[in-house]
């Protein structure tokens, strides 16, 4: 065992990268669920974002356009879900699952000519002096811009939900859509916008994997992160900061366990491999022992005539 082989600074820096796609997708889904909609299509929207972002970044050689395309791609796919559940009043669970299957298939089709291509690199943040600081520099000031977007988005979502009128409406729609409707709020419009936001976030998270974290296009490359994001929202009791904590715990322990394995720590590998899931769930379950609960109208279909 040689723990000195692990460089804590590099470890923290890479756990932040590992957590970001999960954080982005989970924050998007949190807003969707706060509006009372359960969209199980996160995985599908992520993989569509991954290929849309990758394709546009390669074609235009501009990674930022790629990220915008990824958000658009995820949002367009989520629009399909919005149509099915908000207009056609289809079952949300079934529609969400269908969205994932559809997204996986469609992305494989779209990505056929992009296998084995290298995307344009995204510049990392480089602030003179700050980035060169020891320890703090690589951890706080040496990342790609999307990572900071993820953090800013978490803060913005929290503030918006807690302090703004818009957040109040969104929560009202999610808690009791009949009451919100009676008060004159547009339930369906609010939900469609929330779904679009969720799609854009998931798409961005997917593109983060294909453009920054891996970076390449491979079929099925999100490999279940969308599902973990879904679980994370529930275990985080629909609270943005807990989602952030959960994402960093999960990403962090995943990176840590790989590092511990490489360093030859004498903990059986099986325990290390399951630790990210176990510890993240444990911590969040303990934290959610307070009275937090799911939005009351979560997953229920709304029609103004009812």
């Amino acid at each position: 065992m040689d723990l000195s082989a692990i460089n804590p600074v590099l470890l923290i820096a890479s756990l932040m990268v590992a957590a970001t796609p999960l954080l982005l997708a989970a924050i998007g889904e949190l807003v969707v669920e706060k509006a009372g909609v359960l969209n199980l299509g996160v995985e599908g929207m992520m993989i569509i974002g991954a290929i849309c972002g990758f394709a546009i970044a390669v074609e235009t050689t501009n990674p930022y356009l790629g990220l915008l395309a990824a958000m658009a791609g995820g949002a367009v796919l989520s629009l399909l879900f919005a149509f099915l559940t908000q207009v056609a009043l289809a079952n949300q669970v079934a529609s969400g699952l269908a969205l994932t299957l559809f997204g996986l298939g469609l992305s494989a089709l779209m990505g056929q000519s992009y296998v084995g291509i290298k995307p344009p690199a995204m510049a990392k943040l480089d602030i003179p002096f700050l980035t060169d600081l020891p320890i703090i520099g690589p951890i706080l000031f040496g990342h790609d811009p999307v990572l900071y977007v993820g953090l800013a988005l978490t803060a913005a979502t929290w503030a918006l939900l807690k302090y703004s009128r818009l957040g109040l409406i969104l929560r009202a729609v999610g808690e009791n859509h009949e009451a919100a409707h009676a008060l004159g709020y547009h339930v369906v419009r609010t939900r469609v916008l929330a779904i679009l936001f969720g799609g854009a976030c998931a798409g961005l998270g997917g593109a983060y994997i294909s453009l920054i974290r891996v970076p390449q296009w491979t079929e099925g490359m999100t490999a279940g992160i969308g599902w973990i994001a879904l679980a994370l929202v529930v275990f985080a009791s629909w609270k943005p900061w807990r989602v952030l904590l959960g994402a960093y715990l999960f990403g962090g322990i995943n990176v840590l366990q790989l590092n511990l394995q490489a360093a030859g720590v004498a903990i059986p590998v099986e325990y290390l491999a399951m630790s990210p899931y176990l510890i993240t769930i444990l911590v969040l379950v303990i934290m959610s022992a307070d009275k937090s609960r799911a939005p009351a109208s979560l997953g229920r279909i709304f029609h103004a005539s009812q």
């Binding site: 890479s14 891996v214 390449q216 490359m221």
Partner: peptide, 19 residues
Amino acid sequence: YTWFDPAKEADAAKALIEQ
């Protein structure tokens, strides 16, 4: 513990390289 998970494989490679 996977045959195919690009993100995890990338993380594993990075961890090894960092060490």
